[in-house]
Design a protein around this nucleic acid. Structure first.
Length: 466
RNA sequence: GGUGCCAUCGCCAAGUGGUAAGGCCGCAGCCUGCAAAGCUGCUAUCCCCAGUUCAAAUCUGGGUGGCACCUCCA
């Protein structure tokens, strides 16, 4: 297994701290709004990573956090006149539901900020004790960036003098403009938590460091975790600051490998509220099967920026359709999975920093080759068995082809329409038997008007949503 | 301004030194009552210039164009 380390900027052979075991932490969502395609992309990428690691024989402990303390949550609660918990519960539930539609497995651990406050207190106290953090007169606690000689080495940034001049207006209490809040005192009687540093709220960055420390670290770990993941925008400042906190509060660096997924743009533009709601996952799921979105969002390498575009989605869907059509051809066969040469090749290419494009090419070639043999006369018992094993493996490692193939092709049609189509197909078959092709073609036109296409096969007539 | 990434067929997209994967679209054919699906065949020398090398899409330098981050952000 090889992974591109976005800190060292090179592809590295993956070696976990403990043989056979992998600890993975990914920055999850702040639950103040519906998930958008970017959240989906990130969750999808690390879902794939976990599957590939497991296929390589690793036992993975995967944590993805929920940030449920945040100014934006408080703002939303005030706007909607609801409690913080109502807001965070609502969006957390929605997030879980939508991720499930995408075929994303649940993380093993899903820590919440509200449930990790003690771990944050401990970490902040250690930083204060080590003189890496200081308390200001108004009760805030800041990380002292000047005290950390390795600060900015994660994101390879240089301390920019110009930067300081531009941002002088922000918080005069800080020793250095680069210092970031570990604890913000809140006196307005609103949302605050009691802490050894006074009542207030934790800074964003400390949450992740604390959760990792709480859930993963054992006494002898050379790193807190093996792999830390998240969106590309998180490298700085979020991950830089996380790494600084952990490094200065404990005796170990935060992570051995860092992985960052690329961004999702819509029609060439950065996602923003002004573009309307088209980027929300819930809206995309109304129009497309979750697995179509999974396939499309995963079809480009995880490190590249992804340009979401409906035309591309449609051509990508046609590629997924091929998997399901092959599955249809083998429908009803008893599955007896065995690891084929194809499975080995697929795993090999995915183990090279998740090379999904090569993996998809392998799948397409496998499909064409299987169809070709199946088209010729003969029972092909061995080939069918092998192909079924291949499809099973694709489903397991990539999560493609997990549904009933007939239901997959019927996405979005209601029961009345399905019944009407079935009725018309019987009528058309009768007309065909009577060689009344004019009538059968008229009926077909009527069926096509439902937005479906028809396929006459030796096993009967089937239809698919187009 | 600082730092970094990218540029491969009409579209999407692999390939990081050995002579261009795959999908969509298109064209031709097989199959089909006709279709659809499936199959077969056909379609690029890799932004530009210079260099290194027996050999470069792949390395180096320069140029052009696009993008990201710079303390809210998956």
């Amino acid at each position: 297994m090889h992974i591109f380390d976005s800190v060292q900027k090179t592809k590295r052979k993956f070696t976990p701290m403990v043989e056979g075991k992998v600890s993975l932490y990914v920055c999850g969502p702040t639950v103040y709004d519906d998930a958008h395609l970017g959240h989906a992309k990130s969750a999808l990428v690390f879902d794939l990573l976990v599957r590939v690691l497991e296929a390589n024989g690793y036992s993975v402990i995967y944590a993805r956090n929920i940030t449920d303390i945040d100014d934006k949550i408080i703002k939303k609660a005030q706007e909607q006149n609801r409690t913080i918990k109502e807001i965070t519960d609502f969006y957390t539930t929605a997030y879980h539901r939508e991720m499930a539609f995408l075929g994303i497995k649940k993380p093993d651990i899903e820590p919440k900020a509200t449930e990790s406050l003690n771990a944050m207190f401990e970490l902040i106290q250690k930083l204060i004790d080590n003189k890496h953090a200081y308390k200001t007169e108004d009760g805030d606690v800041y990380f002292d960036t000047a005290s950390d000689s390795k600060y900015l080495t994660l994101s390879n940034r240089v301390q920019d003098e110009g930067d300081k001049f531009q941002r002088v207006e922000s918080s005069s209490m800080k020793k250095n403009s680069a210092d970031f809040a570990l604890w913000k005192s809140v006196n307005d009687g609103g949302v605050s938590f009691n802490s050894p540093f006074g009542s207030g709220r934790p800074g964003w960055h400390i949450e992740c460091s604390a959760m990792i420390e709480k859930h993963f670290v054992t006494v002898s770990s050379p790193y807190a975790i093996d792999i830390h993941g998240g969106g590309a925008d998180l490298l700085f400042p979020h991950h830089e600051n996380e790494a600084a906190q952990t490094r200065c509060a404990t005796s170990h660096p935060l992570a051995n490998y860092w992985m960052h997924n690329g961004f999702v743009n819509i029609d060439g533009e950065k996602m923003s509220k002004s573009l309307g709601n088209s980027f929300f996952l819930k809206d995309a799921l109304k129009a497309y099967d979750g697995e179509v979105l999974r396939f499309y969002l995963l079809s480009t390498h995880y490190r590249s920026n992804f340009n979401f575009n409906e035309d591309d989605l449609l051509s990508s869907k046609k590629r997924l359709d091929r998997i399901y059509r092959l599955k249809k051809r083998l429908f009803g066969l008893a599955n007896a999975y065995e690891r084929t040469a194809f499975c080995e090749k697929l795993l090999d290419t995915l183990s090279d920093d998740l090379n999904i494009s090569s993996a998809l090419a392998l799948i397409d070639e496998m499909i064409s080759s299987a169809n070709e043999t199946l088209d010729t006369a003969g029972k092909h018992k061995e080939l069918k068995k092998e192909t079924l094993s291949n499809l099973t493996y694709i489903e397991k490692i990539l999560g493609f082809g997990a549904k009933n193939p007939f239901e997959y092709f019927q996405f979005g049609l209601n029961e009345d329409a399905k019944a009407k189509i079935a009725e018309l197909i019987i009528k058309r078959d009768e007309a065909k038997k009577a060689k009344d092709f004019a009538l059968s073609d008229t009926i077909r036109d009527e069926i096509l008007s439902f937005g479906v296409s028809l396929m006459d096969t030796p096993n009967g007539t089937f239809w698919e949503r187009t």
